[in-house]
C-alpha cells in the first residue's frame, strides 16, 4: 500500500513544512491584534479568515503546527528513550524479578486513566507546553517498553544470538548490536502512531486550557476560543479542527503504509 505512504507523507510533510516555515515567515504577525478586522471569513487578504482578535488564522495554524509537532515529538521521544531500554532490559533478563517489576509497572501505568493523570500533572506543576510533554510522555513509556520486549523475546531465541553469546558478547552488547537493529522498523511504525496520538492529546490538553499558554498558538486553544463563536463564525472552529484531523490522518496513513512496506509478511496477509 504505497498509496498510504504517499498520501500520509504528503499531509505530514505539508504540516511539518508549515511549522518550519513559521520560524522564518508567517503571512501576518499573530502577536498584533486587529480588532476592526475580527471574524472575517476566508478571503483574498486572509486566506483562512481572522479570529475574534482579528488575527490571521493561517498564521495561527502555522504557529500552532509548530506547537503540536514539538509537543508530540518530544513526548514520543520520552517514550522511546525510556521505554525501549526498559523493554530491552526486561527481554534480556526475561523471567527474572527485574522483568516482572518492569512489566507490572507497565500494567500499572496502563491502569491509570491517562487523560485524568495528564490533567492532574499539568494542574500540579502548572499549565505549560513542557508539562504537557511530560504528561503525554509518561504514557508513551509503557507502550514502547511492552512492544520492544515483545519484539525482542523471539529474537533472543534465534541462532545468530546464540552465536553472538558463544563469541562472548554480554547481553548488554547483544541487545544494542543485534536486538535493537532488528526491532527498529517496528518502533518507527509505533512511533508514528504515538506521534498522532500525541497530537490529539496535546490538542485536548490545550483545549481545556492546560497545554501551551497564550500567546503561544495551539490548535486546541484555537478551538476553545472558537467554541462560543461557532454560530457567528463557523470557520474559526472548522479550520483548526480540520488541521488536527488532517495531521493525525496523515500520520496514521503513514504509519500504516510504513508497516506494510517494512514488513512484507503483513503485506501478503492483508491484501
Amino acid at each position: 500500500m504505497t498509496r498510504n505512504i504517499i498520501f500520509g507523507g504528503v499531509l505530514t510533510t505539508l504540516f511539518t513544512g508549515l511549522a518550519i516555515l513559521s520560524f522564518f515567515y508567517t503571512p501576518y504577525d499573530i502577536q498584533s491584534l486587529d480588532i476592526p478586522n475580527k471574524l472575517h471569513p476566508p478571503n483574498g487578504a486572509n486566506w483562512l479568515g481572522t479570529d475574534h482578535f482579528g488575527r490571521d488564522i493561517l498564521s495561527m495554524i502555522m504557529m500552532g503546527a509548530r506547537t503540536s509537532i514539538a509537543v508530540a515529538v518530544l513526548a514520543v521521544g520520552i517514550g522511546i528513550c525510556v521505554g525501549i531500554p526498559l523493554g530491552l532490559l526486561a527481554a534480556a533478563r526475561r523471567g527474572s524479578l527485574l522483568d516482572e517489576v518492569i512489566m507490572r509497572g507497565n500494567d500499572l501505568v496502563f491502569a491509570f486513566p491517562s487523560l485524568v493523570i495528564a490533567i492532574l500533572i499539568t494542574a500540579i506543576f502548572g499549565a505549560s507546553a513542557i508539562n504537557a510533554i511530560i504528561a503525554i510522555g509518561i504514557f508513551n513509556i509503557p507502550v514502547f517498553a511492552r512492544l520492544s520486549r515483545g519484539a525482542a523475546l523471539p529474537i533472543w531465541e534465534r541462532d545468530f544470538i546464540l552465536a553472538a553469546r558463544v563469541s562472548g558478547k554480554s547481553s548488554f552488547r547483544i541487545s544494542i548490536e543485534h536486538i535493537l537493529p532488528n526491532i527498529t522498523n517496528l518502533m518507527i511504525v509505533q512511533g508514528t502512531i504515538q506521534f498522532s496520538l500525541g497530537i490529539l492529546a496535546e490538542a485536548a490538553l490545550s483545549y481545556i486550557g492546560l497545554g501551551a499558554q497564550p500567546p503561544t498558538a495551539s490548535w486546541g486553544r484555537m478551538l476553545a476560543d472558537a467554541q462560543t463563536l461557532t454560530s457567528i463564525a463557523p470557520h474559526t472552529a472548522l479550520i483548526p479542527g480540520l488541521a488536527i484531523v488532517l495531521m493525525v490522518l496523515g500520520l496514521n496513513l503513514l504509519g500504516d503504509g510504513l508497516r506494510d512496506w517494512l514488513d512484507p509478511r503483513l503485506r501478503r496477509g492483508r491484501v
Binding site: 483545549y207 467554541q227 463557523p234 484531523v245 493525525v248
Partner: peptide
C-alpha cells in the same frame, strides 16, 4: 474508520452542537 480515529472527540462534539443544537 481512518477518519474516525483522526477526529478529536471534542471537536466532533462542537460540530454536532453547531449542526444539531444551533
Amino acid at each position: 474508520t481512518q477518519l474516525g480515529v483522526a477526529i478529536p472527540n471534542f471537536w466532533f462534539a462542537m460540530i454536532l452542537v453547531l449542526i444539531f443544537a444551533i
